[in-house]
Design a protein around this nucleic acid. Structure first.
Lengths: 207, 207
DNA sequence: AAAAAATATTGAACGTGTTCATTTTTTGAG
DNA sequence: CTCAAAAAATGAACACGTTCAATATTTTTT
């Protein structure tokens, strides 16, 4: 059984997290002031900082949850037996993009990316970068899986190809979150267009 | 002949720009306070804001100069007659990377990118994004040039390929500026490795 | 159960980018 | 030259994320 102190701690942690998430989604990340989050959670500003290193750190919980879930979804696709490179890529990347706005708004993504680039030495940035690398590795794994099943030519460097494709996926996602007008369908279509030539070139059934 | 007012304006503009550039490079972007910049330029803080919308806007002058120069360099490469896709790409991209630290430090790049993503509606971000697109288009142009000279296969979509390659170049540059340890040589080597499979696949002398 | 130690809470104060009402300077018409 | 209008300069005040010395609460020791 938890002591009184530990109970209170867990309770406050939860209340702060809930308050922050609610406010981020309701008024946006920038407009949600620490003072407001603290007040909604029923604690002081100082206490907020006892539970979270800073405002950006509050995002990471959410970003982390988001990416972990999408990585799981991605593994299922790698294990499926799609016989076409273009479809396999569109499938995996589609899952990434479809899932992306489940927990986070575009503004939250922008903030997360902005922090990750602007302050690379923070734990926030390091965690963010690590998640990115796991996603990149997953695309490489997809290529390897397709190659081992004879769908992709034997002479293709799966890591090089996977990194290239993922970096494009990532950069296009940046463009997507920068543009409030752009929708997921449009994003997928553009990336599919970019991937198509690659898919053709690496496929075993040479053109 | 300029009136007194216009003379003073031009002079102050110059002094503020010089002070900012000097301080950004000397103590870093974050550590350079507006108050310091204003003092070094011999104006008040308020006057600084009469000349520049905000601190981030001061970066854009430099970023802009940097990218304009590299775009010029790039055009020369497109017009040269390299007979090998890998070499042509390595050449163009190498110029981008070699030039990148001429006017800007890694920290300044990080700040510029961070601002561009975090506040996409600002003039700063819009200018930054426009420069990015011109670079992307240049890589597409290189592919088209190679294709018209028979170096690249006729059936390759130059825009799709160029965008893909450039987005990877850009994402790798982000990794580069995030990592103070990484040098330009290492960056080039990694990107060359990523591009190699593509270069082979799109080349007319099929493997 | 009292005292001491450990831990948690608090909000006022700080730093820095930005704003804006006020003051100063410049201009050009009469 | 004078002076009213236009333009520019100013710095105090503001906003908000963050820190930290002081206070309060909980746990452990005796």
């Amino acid at each position: 059984m938890l002591g009184l102190r530990a109970q209170k701690k867990a309770d406050k942690n939860r209340r702060i997290l809930d308050a922050a998430t609610t406010l981020f989604r309701k008024v946006g990340y920038d407009a949600a002031r620490i003072e407001d989050i603290a007040e909604m959670a029923g604690v002081s500003v100082g206490t907020f900082y006892n539970y979270y290193k800073n405002k950006g750190d509050m995002l990471m919980a959410t970003v982390s949850m988001e990416v972990e879930e999408v990585l799981d979804t991605g593994n299922a696709i790698i294990e499926s037996d799609i016989e076409n490179v273009g479809d396999a890529l569109a499938n995996l990347i589609g899952k990434y993009y479809d899932h992306s706005l489940t927990y986070l708004s575009k503004e939250m993504w922008r903030t997360a990316m902005s922090l990750s680039i602007g302050q690379p030495e923070t734990p926030f940035s390091k965690r963010y970068t690590a998640l990115d690398h796991r996603l990149s590795k997953q695309v490489c794994d997809l290529f390897r899986s397709l190659q081992s099943r004879g769908v992709v030519r034997k002479d293709v460097d799966c890591d090089a190809m996977g990194e290239l494709i993922f970096n494009n996926v990532n950069m296009m996602f940046i463009e997507f979150v920068k543009d409030e007008e752009m929708d997921v369908a449009g994003l997928k279509a553009e990336v599919a267009r970019q991937n198509e030539p690659i898919a053709l070139l690496v496929s075993n059934v040479a053109s």
